[in-house]
C-alpha cells in the first residue's frame, strides 16, 4: 500500500483537513481525544497498523500534544491528539493494541496525564518513593535537591 492509497482509505473515516502528508512515507492524522480509540480500531482493521512504535508527548504550554507512531510495511502513520493542560485525561488504546501499555505508563508518569481504563496504572520508570506531582517532561518542571540525610550521622 503506498501513501496515496493509505490517504484514500484514511479519508473514508477521517476528515480530509485532518490528514497531512509532509514527507514521503509519513502521514499525520489529527483527531480529538474522544475519537482516538475508534480511529485506532478503524486504522488497525483497514490500514493494518497493528505495530505501535511508541507514543510521544510534548508539553506545548496550554496543551499536551500526543503522537501515536504506527509503523507498517510501507512507511508510518502518526496519529496526533491534543489534550488541555487543565484537564489532562486520555482514553487508553490498550483494548485495541495491548502492547501500548508500557508507553501509556510512561506518558502517565512523565507528563501527569491520566490514562483512563489503563490495565496497569503503576509507574514505569520512576522510583518507588517518587514524590507525587512531579512530572519530569513538563517544561516547567524544576528539581530542587532535598537536604542530605546521613543515617546515624550528624544532623
Amino acid at each position: 500500500m503506498n501513501d496515496e492509497q493509505k490517504i484514500e482509505k484514511l479519508k473514508t473515516f477521517a476528515p480530509p483537513e485532518a490528514i497531512a502528508h509532509p514527507a514521503p512515507r509519513r502521514i499525520f492524522v489529527t483527531v480529538e481525544p474522544s475519537g482516538l480509540v475508534a480511529l485506532t480500531a478503524r486504522m488497525k482493521a483497514e490500514l493494518d497498523t497493528w505495530f505501535l512504535s511508541t507514543i510521544s508527548g510534548v508539553d506545548k504550554g496550554e496543551f499536551f500534544e500526543l503522537l501515536y507512531h504506527y509503523g507498517d510495511t510501507s512507511g508510518s502513520v502518526h496519529v496526533r491528539t491534543k489534550i488541555p493542560r487543565s484537564d489532562p485525561r486520555l482514553p487508553s488504546i490498550c483494548g485495541v493494541i495491548p502492547g501500548a501499555v508500557l508507553y501509556e505508563r510512561e506518558i502517565q508518569e512523565m507528563f501527569g496525564i491520566t490514562v483512563e481504563n489503563i490495565p496497569d496504572p503503576r509507574p514505569l520508570l520512576t522510583s518507588d518513593d517518587w514524590p507525587a506531582g512531579n512530572f519530569p517532561l513538563r517544561k516547567d518542571w524544576k528539581f530542587d535537591r532535598p537536604a542530605e540525610v546521613i543515617p546515624g550521622g550528624k544532623k
Binding site: 512504535s53 509503523g71 493494541i97
Partner: peptide
C-alpha cells in the same frame, strides 16, 4: 508478537517480517 508490538529479531523469529530497512 503482533498484539504486543514486538520488534526486531524477536518479531522476525515469530514470522513477522517487519524491517525498517525494507519498509522505510
Amino acid at each position: 508478537a503482533m498484539d504486543l508490538c514486538a520488534t526486531g529479531p524477536t518479531a522476525k523469529a515469530s514470522g513477522v517480517a517487519l524491517d525498517v530497512r525494507k519498509d522505510d
